[in-house]
Every structure is written in C-alpha cells, then in structure tokens.
Amino acid sequence: MIEITNVSKRFGRSLAVDDATLEIQAGDSVALWGVNGAGKSTLIRCMLGLLSFRGTIRIDGHDVRKRGKRARMCVGYVPQEIGFYDDLGVAEAVRYFGKLKGIRMRSTEGVLERVGLLGHESKRIRELSGGMKQRLALAIALLGDPPVLIMDEVTASLDVAGRQEFISFLSELSGRGRTMLFASHRSDEIANLAGRVVVMERGRIKSVQSADAFAEGLDSHVTLHLLIAASARGEAIAVLNRGGYSPTMNGVGVLVPVTARQKGGPFALLNKAQIAIDDFHVLTRHDVGHVRGTEGSTA
C-alpha cells in the first residue's frame, strides 16, 4: 500500500531523512517511533508531497510526485495541530474539505456522529477544544473512506483525558482493514494502535519490530534519574562506577542505566556510601532520549 524507496531529505547541511526504505502492506498499522528530530514528521511530509525529496514514494501505486493528487486521494491526514480557518463552522469545514476530495454531502451528521461531534455542527472552529479539533480533523481525514490514514503526533497537544479518548477512537478504526501510519513518541499509543514499530534515529530507519518486541525492549531496560545535590554528584558517580554501573551526569542529577529487575541496586550502593538521594524518576529509553536531546539543544 505504501512503498518508500531510498528516500532522503536534506535541509541545508542537515540530513533529516537518510536513505529510508520501507514497505507497508495494506491493513498494517505502523508507528514511526523516535525522539524529536528523528525524521518522523519529515518523512510524513514527504509522503504528502509537502517537501521535495530524493527517492520514490508510492501510495497505492501512485507516485506522490508525479500523481500527487491521486496519491493523496488515498490518504486521510491528521496533523499534530490543526490550523483551520477559525471563523469556519464545523459543518462548513467538513463540506469544504469534502468538496476538495470530490465528495458531495447532503448532510454532515453521519460524518460528525462517527467522531462524537454531533450537536457541534454550528460551532465555529475557534470555539472547539483541542480534542474536539483533533476529532474534527479525524472526521475530515475519514471523508471518502480513504484506505490509508496518516497521523503526525496527533495527541501531542492534548491533555491526558483527551489523549485517552482520541486513542480509543483510533483503536476502533485500526481494526477495520485500514492502513495506518502514525508518528509517535508515546508508548501508550504504540501499545494501543501499532502492529509494527519503525524506530527512527537521526533520519535513519534503525529497526522495524513487532509492537510486542518493541514493548519488551522498552520494559527490559530503564534509566534511573537520581536527583542528588551538586556537591555529592561526583562522589556518587565514582561509587556507582565502582559498583559496575555506567552513570552519567545530566545537569540536575545522575542518569544510571539498569535492567528493569535491578532498579534497587544503585539505591543500596549510594545509601551505603551515605549519599542522599533527594528524588528519582524511572525513565524509559525514549524518555532518556528526550532528556539528553533537551540538554543538547540548550547547551
């Protein structure tokens, strides 16, 4: 259904997507996983024809560069944050985008009911909450029942309740034979929606795994983020090194990679050395990437 062949995208000197090759079969639900800047959104934008790129992308056999309109007919797209015309009414927006997809609608009720927006037809878009806007975007994406649904970190701007609600909407859709490709860095989305996970790192596709294997990998190794007073951090590093760990400083504490079943070890060592731990967090592999990525960008 989607064939991505040797796709590269460069922004100036930075290589945002590096020789990505991927084939997604009809009916697959695939997550693009990676930290910010891994190239997930750039790859999606290439698929939608919003960016020029090297290589080839075909959706349902249509080259997105040569037959862009035909390829996009097969795609429903939900962006991270929708930038609708604020003055547009909900029903008006559905009709407008329906027309662009070649659909004549007598009524928008069915479409809006599908995503739980029935009763909000006359509201202006600026009156909708973030979650409702995303549901509207989903309603528009599903117009014409396209075989492919592409989503780019769709829950990033939602609160916890909105996110759970939206994921439950999507999980209903994913079981109906539709091909889904979505960028995410949230493990709950992967667990609920993905059948396969494409791990991206610095623009490259690092691995392709089943969702179960990916979840096991996430759980098997974690990192302890120990908040320790600055004056004691050096000594803590030395103690943990002697204990066989590989700790690193991160500015406000110490990061210690451990296996999921041995989280108590570093605490015992530091306690024995009488080094006080003010607080701690257990980070997944992805969270660590974010902590390091943030440091790198602010340094």
């Binding site: 259904m1 990505a20 009916g27 349902d60 075989p147 034979g177 091909t179 059948g195 392709v208």
Partner: peptide, 16 residues
C-alpha cells in the same frame, strides 16, 4: 527495512 506482515487485514476490504 520491509514490513511484510499485516496485523489487521480484511479480505478484499482495502478500499481505494
């Protein structure tokens, strides 16, 4: 990297 397996597939249900 090839994704060949299909997690959810309805026979003949892929709609173009």
């Amino acid at each position: 990297s090839a994704l060949t397996g299909s997690t959810t597939r309805l026979d003949g249900a892929v709609r173009t």
